[in-house]
Design a protein around this nucleic acid. Structure first.
Lengths: 237, 237
DNA sequence: TAGTGGTCTAGACCACAGC
DNA sequence: CTGTGGTCTAGACCACTAA
């Protein structure tokens, strides 16, 4: 009936996860000890350990030495937010994507910049617009630390959006996102084709690689055109 | 010099992670085979396998049978969004939290409800307000499926906010969040103490347990008062 | 077909926290 | 002290897939 038993540790993990999600094992319930599960499933301790380890990572259970593993109680809602490339977002809506470069300046960073760079470090400042069909979809205002990405100084960014360019030129990155709502200013309203003061969803992203600031970007979406979706699944798949 | 070697698989994982984040191993680079790492670290294959498995889960590497493990190229920005209890948020700002119940209705669900319940199922509808000091912090509009949480019918929610109450009465839950920006309507503006049309950050959350709808809530924050932060770390710690 | 990762075993020692 | 989870070993077989 089911296509389940692809691997034993997954089966164990899913069995236990189902007990928890269904409420049969309430928060605080003590899960069978590893050695009990090895007997129950007729397997070695490593296998159940792997299953329990994944449940613990997912936050479903809490493991305590000497006392056992317990169903955790839900704490803060944690959700995985996927932030896609803007071109992908637009095309997923069935619209034609177009990129427009508005301004490009090289200057020295100030303390007011969100990048977290020492004042005086060279930065590239970009302003651009992402179009969906004939309508403006998103405004982008970006700083790039030229110390971290010197090649950016030679890139005009006239036809390539800075986001995709950076992804292919910077090895890997940690990021922090801040999401808020504001009213459109005059310039933004005009560029987005909305009324001044109209609600906008604003995503600010700061990116580091190996602890060094790489880029800071502010994306402004007309409030009605965009939303973010975040999901939480207790154990993936 | 370092306090590192608490466990070998962590050391291996962090070593490789550092190579990737620093850019020394660019996207597409082939990571040493498991048996090579086994020799390099003088350990068994399970240990390196665990390390590589965690890196793969974190999205830093991609594992391909018969050809090896490779540094992945960053795809969509994935970030973990933590959504805390509103009382906690307010108190973290150093303000006094207060909860106000505005309305409480029991009715039958309609197709227009976001809950995803069959039409006609009994639901509890709540409207309430979360205060920070003397100012309104957040408006809450909530539906609770009484089939899933029958005890809610007996709870007045006059002094207990539905969020914390649900957490302690529902075993575990999956959730989906949608974040957007809107302009405040008249009623909302008056309750939040802002101008009609002023930007608001709106979080809609739908919650299930074991696949059954439990609750749907819309939280409306005055745009200037609130923001969400999401972080991404390539390998935790 | 050969070599990779995926999974699993049947042991082992250890640190640690509750008794 | 005792028993738990945390870690690790030195093997093994398998499925898959790139060559």
């Amino acid at each position: 009936m089911t296509d389940e038993p692809r691997s034993l540790h997954r089966r164990i993990r899913d069995d236990i996860g189902a007990q928890i999600v269904s409420g049969e094992w309430p928060p605080g319930y003590r899960i069978p000890f590893e050695h009990e599960l090895t007997q129950q499933y007729g397997c070695s301790r490593m296998t159940v350990s792997k299953a329990l380890g994944e449940l613990a990572r997912a936050g479903l259970i809490e493991r305590r030495k000497r006392s056992g593993s317990f169903v955790a109680r839900p704490r803060s809602q944690a959700a995985v937010l996927e932030i896609h490339d803007i071109r992908t977002e637009v095309e997923a809506l069935g619209l034609t994507y177009r990129y427009e470069s508005l301004a490009r300046t090289t200057r020295r960073s100030t303390d007011a910049d969100a990048l977290g760079l020492a004042a005086g470090a060279p930065v590239l400042e970009l302003r651009c617009r992402h179009m969906a069909g004939e309508a403006a979809f998103c405004l982008e205002e970006r700083l790039i630390a030229l110390d971290a990405v010197p090649e950016a100084a030679d890139e005009p960014f006239s036809s390539v959006a800075p986001g995709p360019w950076l992804i292919s030129h910077v090895p890997w990155s940690e990021a922090e996102h801040t999401i808020s709502a504001t009213g459109a200013g005059r310039a933004e309203a005009s560029l987005l084709g909305i009324e001044p003061g109209a609600p906008c969803l604003v995503i600010e992203r700061r990116t580091w690689t190996g602890g060094k600031p790489v880029t800071a970007v502010t994306l402004t979406y007309a409030g009605s055109s965009h939303s973010l979706v975040a999901r939480f699944a207790p154990a993936e798949r």
